[in-house]
C-alpha cells in the first residue's frame, strides 16, 4: 500500500484519537465497596422542629442567620437556597405533625459529580460530596442532573458559587461531628459510617415496629445515599420524591459514554474505507479544495 501524505495524516488522526480516548475508558468512580463512607441517619420520630440545625449550619458556614419569623409550618414548603444549606419542614400526617430536615443527600454515586466536567463536585473518600470553587466553571449541569435538586446557584452575584451542604467536610476530617449533628438537642441526627447507620436503622425499626414505617429512605434511592431517613409514616406523606430510581444516576449516561471509544475507532476507519472504495481510480487524483 502506497502511503502518501493524505493517508498518513488520516492514519495519524485515527491513531491520535484512539490514544486520546484510551484515557476516557478509565472511569473516575472509586470502588465504593472498599471505602467506608461516612453518613448521617435522620430519625423523624425524634425531631421536634427546633431549627437548631439550621442555626448551627448558618453559623458554621458563614451564612445569614435564619429569619426567626420563618418557622416550619404545615402547608408551607421551605426550600434550601443560596443562603441556607438545610431547612426543616413540617408535615401533617396520619400520625400527627412530623418534621423533615432536608439538605444534600450525599449519594454514593452522585449524579452531580458525574456531571461535573471539572471535578469541582466530588465524592470524597470520607463520604461527603463537596464543591471546589477553584475548579467550577458555573455551568450548572450538576443542578440539571441532581435528582434531589440540591445544588443551588448564586444567580445575583458576578462571582457566583454553587451552594449545598458538604456534611461539614472540614470538621469531619478533623474528627469532629457535623455542626447540625453536634447541635441537635433531640438526637434526631446520628453521624457514623454508612454501614453502621444502616444497621442501626434496621435495629430501631425491628425493636419498635409500631413507631416506624418499615423503610429506610436513602438505603437504595439513587443507588444509595449517605443521608438516610427513618419515619413513622410512609415517605409519600412527607413530600419525599418516591419516584427516584433505585439504581445510580451516573449509570444513565454510562452506556453512551462507553460507546464513545468504539465510535472513535470504528468511524474513521469505516469512513476512510468508504472514501477509498468509492474513489474512481481512472480519474485523476482529486483536488480536495
Amino acid at each position: 500500500m502506497k502511503i502518501n501524505r493524505r493517508n498518513f495524516l488520516a492514519v495519524l488522526g485515527v491513531t491520535g484519537v484512539s490514544l486520546a480516548t484510551g484515557e476516557k475508558l478509565q472511569s473516575s468512580q472509586e470502588n465504593e465497596n472498599e471505602t467506608e463512607f461516612f453518613g448521617i441517619l435522620y430519625d423523624a420520630t425524634r425531631c421536634v422542629g427546633c431549627q437548631s440545625c439550621e442555626f448551627a449550619c448558618a453559623a458554621e458556614h458563614g451564612l445569614p442567620e435564619p429569619d426567626p419569623s420563618d418557622m416550619p409550618e404545615v402547608g408551607k414548603l421551605r426550600k434550601t437556597n443560596e443562603n441556607r444549606r438545610t431547612v426543616v419542614n413540617a408535615y401533617e400526617t396520619s400520625k400527627g405533625e412530623i418534621y423533615i430536615k432536608s439538605q444534600c443527600m450525599h449519594c454514593n454515586q452522585p449524579a452531580c459529580s458525574s456531571a461535573c466536567l471539572t471535578n469541582a463536585m466530588k465524592k470524597t473518600y470520607e463520604g461527603p460530596v463537596t464543591w471546589n470553587g477553584d475548579k467550577c466553571m458555573g455551568c450548572r449541569y450538576c443542578m440539571v442532573s441532581c435528582p434531589f435538586e440540591v445544588p443551588k446557584f448564586e444567580y445575583h452575584s458576578p462571582n457566583p458559587k454553587i451552594v449545598k451542604c458538604n456534611m461539614c467536610y472540614d470538621r469531619v476530617i478533623e474528627g469532629k461531628l457535623p455542626a447540625c449533628v453536634e447541635n441537635c438537642p433531640a438526637e434526631a441526627i446520628t453521624f457514623g459510617s454508612r454501614r453502621e447507620l444502616v444497621a442501626e436503622a434496621h435495629r430501631r425499626i425491628s425493636e419498635n415496629p409500631d413507631d416506624y414505617h418499615n423503610y429506610i429512605y436513602g438505603e437504595n434511592e439513587a443507588g444509595g445515599t449517605g443521608f438516610m431517613y427513618l419515619s413513622p409514616v410512609p415517605f409519600e406523606e412527607l413530600g419525599f420524591n418516591t419516584s427516584i430510581q433505585k439504581s445510580s444516576y451516573p449509570e444513565l449516561t454510562s452506556g453512551f459514554l462507553y460507546s464513545v471509544p468504539s465510535i472513535f475507532v470504528l468511524w474513521p476507519a469505516a469512513l476512510l474505507g468508504i472514501q477509498k472504495a468509492l474513489k474512481n481510480n481512472k480519474s485523476e487524483e482529486e483536488d480536495y479544495e
Partner: peptide, 28 residues
Amino acid sequence: LDLGRPWNVINPIIGNSFGVSSVLFLVA
C-alpha cells in the same frame, strides 16, 4: 455568557481537572 464562572472554562481543557465521566466534558 451562561457560565457563572467563565474564567474557569479552561479547566477541563488544560488538564488539571478532567471530569471524564461527564457528558459535558465530551461535548466541550
